[in-house]
Design a binder for these strands. Structure first.
Lengths: 261, 261
DNA sequence: AAGTGGTCTAGACCACCTG
DNA sequence: AGGTGGTCTAGACCACTTA
């Protein structure tokens, strides 16, 4: 129709400084503005994980753009794994509560390719004050309340992963050791259904480290044995960090699988 | 116009058996058929890495489809990193010979985020007969000729990566130690410009291992020190494996960075 | 100014799912 | 049968690059 209805929609963005002015995109195409609106709706919780969002036709009408433009916005959100399209059914908010792919972010696979059943065992769950480093990674201030969880994952009766993780205390109020003990399924499913926190993406730093006495005992390995250290920061809508996790993987019969392209 | 010009273009596919018939897609949309044609052209070397491919309009005319359909095919090839679009200039065949992003597949970054200059030192380059495992990973037969290379990467004067890699001898005929010694730049750039082998994607298996005497000496670490083992199989057009690589990373001041989504 | 990719639209029809 | 996403088309115009 008109070809450029540019709203310069930069809601939520900090004011541009001289420094980043150069890096800022000159303009946003319409479909990106629609994408931003949809993202806001997701962040605001207008549609919950697992639910259907309105049809493309309806959204087009609502935003007064063509269906193709809405479509392109949804396309990007789908490749970002925020939405899931299902032909003939509709478009759904991505969720960790699907029967498929239980552990979307766990890249550990067995060397022989077999799919093992995974067993969880929680070691402890405490509320404490965040140390400087934990606070920084979670976007909190030192001394803010955090929940610390430690747990062990086993494959074929053998402990393979020792996880230690920190969550912002404010967002995870009712999270207790009892609650964890009776929970069946991935943690991210619990976080999503009980605390309304959906993990969108994560960044990991991977290193090889020597097992300390504690890790060695829990994983049934010798002290000093090489372990894979996987430090993860997970983000929810709006790129807000909401989990810091440090995993120690025993990689004698399993490995961390990655695809490069 | 017609809406479905389905050619059932399954060139190169084995005949469907009863087993995989269920998994086989019922039909290919037109843009996927175009995508397949473009992929074949890339594989055949019709357009070399770094070169421009014909414009969307011309391809549309050539294939007798609308520009939008060509566009969607190119979109997918661009997200697969086979093509690179440059607004106003054209669409180019992806290459490792760009001044930007020298090491597209190297995920090792320094803990403090600084970008170190990288130094290469070749240890040796031999032609030998493939062992069973190497042959299997490269799609060769045991005893086929392979080239074995070992080299050391250093950051800030400190050796950090010990790589050992195998290439199919047939495709890398003139590859000698001298050739390597005088080469400046990433190996994949050499492979591409001198041997016409472009790496498209790779799979990595990551483990923590203890340094053996050899690796310890070369990396300046104690024997038994934990190292990151990164086993990579790299593929060229048509998903044909053309490189097996095993890297040992010293992760005391660096880490392997990964994004999950 | 000309050429390329990028955006937006409107409409037709297909494939898939659910009632 | 009706609704949803998926494909395809044709045309207009915008943004960017090069000459």
């Amino acid at each position: 129709m008109d070809g450029h209805r540019r709203l310069w929609c930069n809601a939520g963005m900090p004011a541009a400084t001289d420094v980043d002015a150069a890096a800022a995109p000159a303009f946003s195409p319409l479909y990106r503005q629609i994408k931003a609106l949809l993202t806001q709706a997701l962040q605001a919780g207008d549609w919950k994980p697992g639910e259907v969002i309105p049809s493309e036709a309806e959204l087009a009408q609502r935003f007064k753009v063509s269906q193709g433009t809405v479509r392109k916005a949804i396309d990007e959100l789908a490749t970002d794994n925020l939405l899931v399209r299902r032909q003939g059914r509709g478009t759904f908010v991505a969720t960790h509560a699907e029967t498929q792919v239980q552990y979307r972010f766990l890249r550990l696979v067995s060397d022989d390719g077999s799919a093992d059943r995974l067993e969880r065992r929680f070691l402890d769950c405490r509320r404490l004050r965040a140390q400087a480093e934990v606070a920084r990674e979670l976007g909190l201030r030192s001394g803010d309340a955090v929940v610390q969880i430690r747990r062990l994952l086993s494959l074929r009766e053998r402990p393979v992963v020792l996880d230690e993780l920190w969550l912002p205390g404010a967002a995870f109020k009712g999270l207790t050791a009892e609650r964890l003990a009776q929970w069946r399924g991935p943690l991210y499913r619990l976080f999503e259904s009980e605390f309304g926190v959906h993990m969108v993406r994560a960044e990991e730093k991977i290193r090889a480290v020597a097992a300390d006495a504690d890790a060695a005992a829990l994983l049934g390995r010798a002290q000093g044995a090489p372990l894979l250290s996987v430090e993860r920061v997970a983000y929810t809508y709006g790129d807000r960090p909401v989990e810091l996790r440090r995993g120690l993987y025993d990689t004698t019969t399993h490995h961390y699988r990655n695809e490069l392209s």
